[in-house]
Design a protein around this nucleic acid. Sequence first.
DNA 1: CATATTTTGTACCGCTTCGCATTAAATTCT
DNA 2: AGAATTTAATGCGAAGCGGTACAAAATATG
Lengths: 206, 206
Amino acid sequence: MKDEKKRGRPRAFDAKAALAKARDVFWDRGFAAASLDNLSAATKLNRPSLYGAFGDKEDLYLDTLEGYRQDGMDALAEALDPSLQLRDNLARVYAGALAVYLHGEIAARGCLLIGTATVEAVEHERVREVLGRSLSDFDGAIEKRMRLAVESGELAEGADPQMLAMLASAVMHSLAVRARAGDSRETLEEIASSGVELICGSARQS
Amino acid sequence: MKDEKKRGRPRAFDAKAALAKARDVFWDRGFAAASLDNLSAATKLNRPSLYGAFGDKEDLYLDTLEGYRQDGMDALAEALDPSLQLRDNLARVYAGALAVYLHGEIAARGCLLIGTATVEAVEHERVREVLGRSLSDFDGAIEKRMRLAVESGELAEGADPQMLAMLASAVMHSLAVRARAGDSRETLEEIASSGVELICGSARQS
DNA sequence: CATATTTTGTACCGCTTCGCATTAAATTCT
DNA sequence: AGAATTTAATGCGAAGCGGTACAAAATATG
């Protein structure tokens, strides 16, 4: 169902690859400061092609956010493998995030959503919606793992999975902001491991 | 030393009030999307006056950030009154933050620094510097209070004041992001109080 | 009162912005 | 082969951008 030959001139570019290039531009500059010329240069598509394929600048931006969200959720699901200890799960989540956040040409880019969507969230309702949904999906996935940990006895019986998940996410948010603010990898790794300790403090070592 | 009469035509506006108006514009729109026309309209200063008083747009933005940082540190110092329990201190810090974060015409504005400076931090070194300094000053003030709590025995002897402070800040960062993403006051208050519990968990009730 | 100095307001500059109209090119369908 | 359809490339255009030149206004100084 992918190779139904459409009539008309075929595309000379890979939409997914173009989206990835556009994402890098937004990641560095943010939505407002990223110009269509920047995006056109990075994707090697001229503006009308960009427009035809993705819609206007906001549509394109929302597309990149959605893709990023999806990638993040995939990585999260993998990191939360329930056959591992909760501690290890969280450590993997943070390590994976830092690998992404600390990448950057000029300075560390942090999280695309927290670093660039947050600023637009006030005036662009669609961005606010994607951001809100991304955060709560993230919370939800961790909460699910936390609930499992309570059921299996890995966390104390009285532990509140939802709140522990929110706090585990809070550490992520902090890593995202601090990475973009220029904190060193060492600092961020310490915060991550302290966060794991605090949140899993009541979890028994197996 | 404030009323040294300068020669020449006197200013017809209050610079501090103008700065506060400009801050509101940046707070809603972010640095990149705030135009000089927006700022001029909000402050009721025409562009040359703005320029004369504060320099270019980036200078003006950095001025608003610096003022915000200062206000925040003042509020923090007040909330961390060491004659109160550490629990109460943190609760006051979060309550004060939420009062600021949840204010907004269209949607909650969150934190000016985290909500608008983060996105510019990659490409504007001066913004990154202010943001980094603001975050670490905040950490530092809380850490100081944490250290006191360890010395006074309010926190367990083995507790790491620096790391507890970083995590207390992490909850703030999360509140800042989530407020701007549209989370409800109730949700944010729950997170704040869970954060207090988790961080002060080992603190004895007096 | 004249001069120097600073602020104010108007108007404008060159540049960039986003989006689109238009034409050329490449492919499928008939 | 020719019509239909889709994409690609050029380039434009109206609006907005940040910043400033310039002259008028308001004050202090001599």
